[in-house]
């Protein structure tokens, strides 16, 4: 019952987000220029490679050490793969100024991302003592605190990359 309610809530939130994002796209003239599109294509490629390499490395680990050490459940494996590839995509895009669209000012957005990262990591740290990463039969299971940590890492890495990039740009003049 609870999971059905959560799923319904997720669908409603997704529908509302789509409903509001489509008109915004229509009425703003934000777009990526040709260099940004090339950079984002490269970022996509590197993100795909990252996912493939991660899965290959994990496959070899599981093959040789799976019965000796801890392995990941399917959901943790998927979530970690997504985290790694999304991080690579975002960091590469932000570092090459291809994350924000033309005429879009980003400091506010990245401050917000930093705040979201701090909130997520803060909640994770606050709950750290109560947090247990359930390992059943040597398999690490997915938990809420793990998702908070991962979200914190994604938003934090994007925000930090942006501000480091700004500082290096200013130093270069």
């Amino acid at each position: 019952m609870k999971s059905t309610f959560t799923f319904l809530l997720f669908c409603i939130v997704l529908a509302v987000c789509l409903l509001f994002s489509l008109p915004i796209k229509k009425y703003t003239n934000y777009h990526y220029d040709e260099r940004q599109e090339i950079i984002r294509g490269k970022a996509n490629k590197y993100a795909n490679y990252t996912l493939i390499i991660f899965l290959a490395v994990y496959f070899i680990y599981d093959l040789f050490f799976g019965d000796k050490f801890i392995t990941l459940s399917a959901s943790v494996l998927a979530f970690t793969g997504i985290l790694l590839s999304v991080c690579i995509f975002l960091i590469y895009s932000v570092w090459n100024s291809a994350f924000l669209q033309v005429n879009q000012h980003g400091t506010g957005i990245f401050v917000l991302y930093g705040f979201i990262a701090l909130l997520n990591i803060g909640v994770f740290i606050l709950n750290y003592k109560n947090t247990t990463f359930p390992i059943e039969n040597g398999v690490l299971q997915f938990t809420n605190s793990l998702s908070q940590l991962f979200c914190g890492i994604i938003f934090g890495s994007v925000s930090i990359t942006y501000f480091i990039k700004r500082i290096t740009d200013k130093m270069e003049g």
């Binding site: 220029d33 040709e34 260099r35 940004q36 090459n96 100024s97 924000l100 033309v102 005429n103």
Partner: peptide, 19 residues
Amino acid sequence: CDVSRQTISAIEKGDYNPT
């Protein structure tokens, strides 16, 4: 030119060949 400032900067630096 309806592009980002970084694109103009990259062209001037020789880091990007424009279409």
